[in-house]
Computed example of a mutant assay.
Amino acid sequence: MQHPQEHEERILLATREFAKSINSGRKVVADMSSLVDATSRLSLSNLDYWERLIRWEFSEVLRSSTPSKWKPWTQSTPFLTWIDLCSGDGFKREKTLCSLSGAAPNSFFFALAVRRLNDWVRQVREAAQEKLPIIAKESDPEHVVDALCVTLPHWNSWGRLEDADKRVLLEITSIEEVSQALKLRIMSATSGPMTSMLAQVGRTATLDHCLSEIAEDAIQPSVRAKAYRCLFEGKMVWFEGRKWEWTDIRYCEGRLKPVLSERNLSVTSPFLETLKKAAVDHSPMVRRVAGEMLIRELKTIGEESLKLANLLASDSSPSVSERGKFALKKLETQEA
């Protein structure tokens, strides 16, 4: 495993070589394979740092290697490439987005294009809205999903992101190849904010038909619990943001209150069958959801309620067994 210092040296070297080839005066597009290889090894969780590092190094090399103005025949061709998405010039970022075609070289460069939705220049954001769906359809779905996984769980912190920008990203998740890769990622990931990913993607019906599969087979217990809860309640709930709420305006005291939104699912699931599966899940987190739903629907379940209540009451997890015992007490009260 490479250390961050080694990653940084590789990035700087690849950026330097690419910048020199851009400014060499050749009338061919420079080869950026070394830069693509270097950025393919980066974690996208620290994307802001790598973007600033590449921008600084690229501009410094271009500035220092600019051909003499007395030799106009050696002036460089102003190529626009994926690396210009890092440019400090808003006009160049906009022009780069408008000129891009084909697939993104890797996850890093597609993530750079996604970040332009939060750009400080309005025209750049508009260009990103137009081009991102086109680029996503041409790109490797795994590269697209990599970028979405570092964007969707945190996009509420992007101050310039508007509803139109969110619709663009949700449109990308609905691309068939991307939605399939996204489902597999949510199910197979052993770490990361996959529960938040499922909730944010759930703003649309893209994964509604996969919720039963996710509930049964996802690796992370929190993801399975979220999927089961959605199936039980028939709706998807997601975190929309926070708003300030005064608790005592006389003393200027208040707090940030979470804002939730919801959408009814486009599919239905047999309640009792789903409850039985959740009740025997190997994670207490999921079995707690089963206990909660059993208590809520005791009157409608019928004879199976006693079996399920006894099963949960004998659970090895105290938080699950408490729910089972409470369900048994309610059943006794109903019979009395």
Rank of each mutant, 00 (worst) to 15 (best):
S45Q: 15
S321N: 09
C230P: 07
E176L: 07
T247Q: 05
D281Y: 12
A199Y: 04
K307I: 14
V286K: 11
P72V: 10
S269D: 07
N264G: 01
A309P: 11
Q75E: 12
P153R: 06
S222C: 09
A104P: 00
S76Q: 14
L97I: 14
S33T: 15
W70F: 15
L42M: 11
R41W: 07
W70D: 12
K226V: 07
R41L: 08
R185S: 09
N106V: 03
H282S: 12
E6M: 10
P4K: 08
S139N: 06
E176H: 07
T204E: 08
P67F: 04
E9F: 04
E292G: 11
Q129I: 02
I11W: 00
S283F: 05
E273R: 15
F18T: 01
A111N: 08
V259I: 13
T39D: 00
L311N: 10
R323C: 05
R125N: 06
R185Y: 12
V267D: 03
K330D: 00
S321D: 05
M293K: 00
P78W: 05
R323E: 13
E130V: 05
I301K: 07
D281E: 05
P270A: 08
S317V: 07
S34N: 01
A189C: 08
D84C: 10
Q2A: 14
F326D: 13
L231S: 00
I22W: 03
N118A: 12
V259P: 04
S188F: 14
K166S: 11
E262Y: 11
S21K: 11
L42G: 07
A278F: 06
T15L: 04
S64W: 12
Q5V: 15
R288K: 14
K95Y: 02
H282A: 05
V36T: 10
G234H: 04
M285D: 12
L85P: 00
Q5D: 14
H3K: 15
E176Y: 09
I54V: 13
E130Y: 10
I11E: 04
W238N: 09
A218M: 11
V150Q: 03
Q2K: 09
M197Q: 02
C252R: 05
S305F: 08
D37T: 03
V145Q: 05
G90T: 05
A327E: 06
S179C: 12
F18M: 02
V124S: 00
M236R: 11
V320N: 06
S266H: 00
I134Y: 14
L161H: 01
D163M: 08
L12R: 03
M194A: 13
F109M: 10
V144D: 01
